[in-house]
Amino acid sequence: MPALLLTLLKFIFVAFVYLFVWQVARAVGSHVGTGEITRRSKPGNQVVIIKSETQAGQNIAVRDAVVLGRSAEADIVLEDPYASEFHMRLVRQDGGIVLHDLGSTNGTYVNGRRVGSPITLSQGDAIQVGKTIMEVR
């Protein structure tokens, strides 16, 4: 076999491989690059306590606005020693729920981040107050 022919065939082989990869890459590019990627951003409708010593399973319906806290005067009483008297407020707004921290001592955490300014909740978000954990559904 002449060496020249083999060299030529070598380039043809690599060219075939590239042609093949290019064909797939073009199709993949239009698939991975664009097109919407689904995110869980459906607005929440209610809040359910999923972890608490005494209140697990309790369903908190949010109609207009509810205040949650340790005080007996709160709309929803949180039986948690780490919660403040008036800990946070949930407000129904534009079809979703917005969470306001009412200057609580130990803070309110949504998905592990401390809430500063009011935050709009999405389904699946985890809200934590002291040792109580709630989920937005």
């Binding site: 082989f13 690599v14 491989v17 990869v21 993949v28 991975v32």
Partner: peptide, 23 residues
């Protein structure tokens, strides 16, 4: 045997495969 040209093609193919998986 396929040089830089072939190696890059192989790496690109793996990258595409992983990208498709993450996609």
């Amino acid at each position: 045997e396929l040089g830089l040209a072939g190696s890059v093609a192989v790496i690109a193919t793996f990258a595409l495969l992983v990208a498709v998986g993450f996609g």
